[in-house]
Write a protein that binds this DNA or RNA. Sequence first.
DNA 1: AACCATGCCAACCGCGTAGCC
DNA 2: TGGCTACGCGGTTGGCATGGT
Length: 423
Amino acid sequence: MGRHSCCYKQKLRKGLWSPEEDEKLMNHITKHGHGCWSTVPKLAGLQRCGKSCRLRWINYLRPDLKRGAFSEEEEDLIVELHAVLGNRWSQIATRLPGRTDNEIKNLWNSCIKKKLRQKGIDPNTHKPLAEVDRSKAAPAVSADRTSESSDVDPSSGVVLGNLSHLLRETAQSSELLPMEVTKPRTEAPGLTRLKLPPKELFLDQLSSGRESLPGCHSSGQIPNFPFQQLLCYNNDIGSRNSLWYNQNESSSSTISTVMPPVSPSTLSTSTGLNPSPDNPRSRGTGIHSAQFYWDRNNPSSSSSTGSSGNNGLGFELQSTSSLLETNIFPWTGLAPEKESQVQLEEELKWPELLHGTFPDMPATMQNLGHSLYEDVVKAESQFNMEGFCAAWSQNLQPQQHLPVVSDMYDKDLQRMSLSFDNI
DNA sequence: AACCATGCCAACCGCGTAGCC
DNA sequence: TGGCTACGCGGTTGGCATGGT
């Protein structure tokens, strides 16, 4: 903990970097890589601390940096991502290739905030300013946190979506979750306010998706979709490519194709899909921690065969079956059983919680409210059904493994149906 | 031309945390 | 298990550039 040891060393230069210093650092890193940053200044002959070198490299010298002004599309994307991720600049930066977190942060503070205010939008909450002012003037205090007539969190005024009901109801019925779990952190105000497609749209897209899949027929009911919003915990959203988004929808008002993490076991199954190969930080605490990746430079790279590759939307549908089981409807009990308890010993993750909540809940979980709350606000990857449905309907093109996909698809619908019947 | 205010951006600072011993 | 090191992140600061008076 504490400060980097090199920062204590004396006679280290501070302030702006000279071209000579830049050259030294650049030469050193291009020749040897940075390795351990604390040794870089010494090896490169610089009177700087390693931290400073790292920052200079990341923010200025890195060859893949994009120079120049931000485009409108980039700004839009930043706004959208900020609505979802809050001030998690590094995560936002991973969605803007060639841009650094520092750059984005500066842009946000200097330009975007101002623009949003001019448009009458509060940059912190992404709500209309008038609404924010009103809530400040008269903060809503309601004792009836269980009210089903409103999705607005009474303490914060932030729309929670129906998932909050699910949680509240779950908490009430099982007495497992303190009510504060529904309280969103203002840091990521948009977290719970994604514009969500109506159920009808989901069903419509779901059915049209099915219809678009040759040989796919339903033997079960199309389920009622019981919530507007899904939050899926991504164990390492900060890592590169861990968020899926549709490049073509950058001007949309929502992050419409953010996908949840998917089980690595899923990846190794018939789908031929791979977890992110360039993500050494995907340590993975369990089945939910792996990530699919979308390589902006090579959109079809996640498919070993290419047959399930990019469909023009900018992302690929991966395994529907396990995805649904382990991430979208994790509480259904349809997910692989092996994961159900193991994860609870660690920080409780969304899917684990939801998965673990409905079956017999260990008494110890009563103490996990805080963890849950943290996970709620840490739900750094979110899942918007609109994008999912669009992807579903458009990605499932005839492929060589179509019978498998078709079968999975069919099973998924049956399971979804069963799941919702059980809720 | 001089001064001041404001904006922008690079860099710093402090903290959290993973990994190692 | 606890301490230490190193890394990464987000907030903040400071200096330069620009525009207005």
